[in-house]
Amino acid sequence: MIAWVLLSLFAISSVSAQMPAGKVVDDMSLVQLPDLPLEDPPSEAIAAERTKRLQHALRCPVCQGLSVADSPADAARAMGDRIEELVEEGYTEEQITEYFVDRYGAWVELEPPTEDHKALFIAPIALLLIALGAFAVWNRRRPTSTTSESAIPTIELDPDLKPWRERILSELEGEAS
């Protein structure tokens, strides 16, 4: 018991300093589901489609990078069922996504929201365009020594075939002799 108290005192003094005492988020109520769904309960077909979309878009919390739909884990099944319930109760996809992000954190979305992470989507396209532009500029600046090669006639047959055609002919000659 004495040890307990001593330990307690030590622990309080060391840890309480690090604790943000009154860290309370303004919109605390968000954690509870909104009282009324924004829409009427959807039809069965729409609900099934929404459920599937959400189950593929949300991440199984106990797996590595698998969606709720793909994961065979029990926890993912429970989450998948919960998604289905919420959809059937009439919550919108945004509300349901927010419900899970509030609880698990931003990583529960398998793809981050596009508007907050534009670079992720634009950078590859930008790179492709820059590379194209760079090549065009570089090619234009190169000295254009017009060699005889540029006057290659149009092809009826792939020029790749020429060498083997010649080889076939030479082989035929070999066979004949």
Partner: peptide, 8 residues
């Protein structure tokens, strides 16, 4: 997943 800290 400590998103709930500080919330109701």
């Amino acid at each position: 997943s400590n998103a709930l800290e500080g919330r109701e």
